[in-house]
């Protein structure tokens, strides 16, 4: 079933891609191969290959149970939030929180996770910013 859904998703993607390709402006110069040709080929091959998993699906993968899915969605949300808040909160604070949360979800006790988060954050800050001179996100306090 998973493979069939994947195939159909790819087929839809190919259709969307091909329609988008047909709206590409052609520019002023007439050339034998314009900017649309290569995307047309890609879209066509994608559509044809997508048929295979629909008709001949592999054995379904072992998807994680509900709890696992929630864990993964939560981790992805933490990472998105991290990316979003980085310029506001500054590197050290955001990284400490994000690393601590991830470590906690991977099975560390809350106190140890908090310590690990701070250690990871400060460690990266010292090595990459102070020693190697990489520019990291500056928050309201300059770090």
């Amino acid at each position: 079933m998973s493979d069939r859904i994947f195939g159909i998703a790819c087929l839809l993607l190919a259709g969307f891609y091909l329609v988008s390709a047909s709206t590409i402006e052609l520019g002023f110069i007439e050339t034998p191969v314009g900017p649309r040709a290569f995307p047309y080929i890609i879209g066509a091959v994608l559509a044809i290959s997508a048929l295979y998993p629909i008709f001949v699906p592999d054995a379904p993968p072992e998807w994680p149970d509900m709890r696992g899915l929630v864990e993964i969605a939560f981790a992805a949300a933490v990472m998105f939030a991290y990316a979003w808040l980085l310029p506001t909160g500054g590197f050290v604070l955001c990284t400490a929180v994000a690393a601590a949360v991830l470590s906690w979800r991977l099975g560390t006790t809350p106190l140890a996770a908090a310590t690990a988060g701070v250690a990871i954050s400060v460690g990266i800050y010292v090595v990459f910013h102070l020693v190697l001179g990489l520019s990291l996100a500056r928050g309201p306090w300059g770090f």
């Binding site: 990316a83 990284t95 991830l102 470590s103 560390t108 690990a116 988060g117």
Partner: peptide, 12 residues
Amino acid sequence: RFLMPAVAMISF
């Protein structure tokens, strides 16, 4: 559980 968060943060 300590390594993977560090890897993610270094990637960022």
